[in-house]
């Protein structure tokens, strides 16, 4: 029964791939699949951070606003060079993440409320900083290469997707930190009793989420060649959806990075198929909503049958 949480998303993905293959002969081609992976890079970064956050039993709504701030700041600081931009972007993510983490641990504000606040604040900061318009500047070729380059015919963003998930997997499964993330989600009080520094782990989780979101923002600017203050809208919703569809429990303590990877691919494949079929992009969020409902339904069914098995 428990395996269902793992295998149901995987089975769904396989079915979707088969459906895609039948609906369009372009679907199962190397270039399309690379395309699909490449355009998932930003979601992938955010989803890995969000997985860790949700595993602790929290939520991070501020990621979309961090994306936007990092996007415009990296467009506006091209003169610093690649390394300089990178440091700046990492700093933005880490600081906002740390604010989230500190507010919700030291002041015991609900994660939802704390990150809702930073989401509003940093979206506004971004719009204020840019006066609402995009930052068009001379994006350097080196910076542009980050999102548009390729190695051995593989687009760099596709590589980022794989790398970030591998790192996420190692962190969650092969470091004490990752196991403590799971432990905290499974029982915060117990974790404290067991001597885990719950506050510190949580703050780090939000810092990681913030940093990954900031990197995603930098990637967007590199890809579209300007700093768009409206980028990252609803990214938090997409990331949460990816994590949940991947089988992670919204109450924390249960879930895997691999699941989120599959969740990400499920959404990417569905969107890709709709693009191939020329379905309006306005319809896509509707489909996304439907997928979330289906996933939630499947999970609640699973929990129900598990609960009744427990009584017997």
């Amino acid at each position: 029964m428990k395996k269902l949480r793992t295998y149901l998303p995987l089975a769904t993905l396989v079915v979707l791939m088969i459906v895609g293959t039948f609906l369009s002969d372009k679907f199962l081609t190397y270039s399309n699949l690379m395309n699909l992976l490449q355009f998932s890079a930003e979601s992938a970064l955010i989803a890995v951070g969000m997985t860790l956050v949700i595993l602790t039993g929290g939520i991070d709504l501020s990621v979309g606003s961090i994306v936007a701030l990092a996007a415009v700041v990296s467009a506006n600081s091209q003169q610093l060079g690649l390394a300089g931009i990178l440091v700046l972007v990492l700093l933005i993510g880490a600081v906002i993440g740390a604010i989230n983490g500190i507010v919700l641990t030291k002041f015991r504000v609900e994660p939802f409320m704390a990150t809702l606040a930073t989401m509003a604040i940093f979206r506004a900061v971004t719009l204020w900083y840019t006066n609402g318009g995009p930052i068009l500047g001379n994006i350097t070729p080196a910076f542009s290469y980050l999102a548009n380059g390729s190695v051995l015919g593989i687009p760099l963003p596709a590589i980022y997707v794989v790398v970030v998930f591998i790192i996420g997997y190692v962190v969650l499964n092969h470091t004490p930190f990752g196991r403590h993330v799971l432990a905290i989600g499974g029982g915060e009080e117990t974790s404290r009793l067991f001597g885990i520094n719950v506050k510190r782990v949580k703050i780090w989780v939000y810092i990681i989420s913030g940093v990954l979101a900031a990197l995603a923002g930098m990637l967007i600017t590199s890809r579209i060649g300007m700093g768009e203050p409206r980028s990252g809208y609803q990214f938090e919703l997409v990331a949460i959806a990816v994590v949940i569809v991947g089988g992670t429990s919204l109450t924390g303590g249960r879930g895997t990075i691999g699941g989120s990877f599959i969740g990400l691919l499920i959404f990417a494949v569905v969107m890709n198929i709709m693009n191939l079929l020329n379905i309006s992009s306005f319809v896509q969020p509707i489909v996304r909503g439907l997928i979330i409902i289906l996933a939630a339904l499947a999970i609640s069914r699973m929990l129900k049958s598990k609960a009744s098995a427990g009584i017997a």
């Binding site: 092969h174 470091t175 004490p176 930190f177 990752g178 196991r179 403590h180 799971l182 432990a183 499974g186 029982g187 117990t190 974790s191 009793l193 067991f194 001597g195 885990i196 303590g253 249960r254």
Partner: peptide
Amino acid sequence: QEIPALSVAENIYLGREPRKGTLL
């Protein structure tokens, strides 16, 4: 006092896991 979703061994040594560098 337990973390139900983790293994017996992890529950025993939670917070004091044997590690090498940052790896478990």
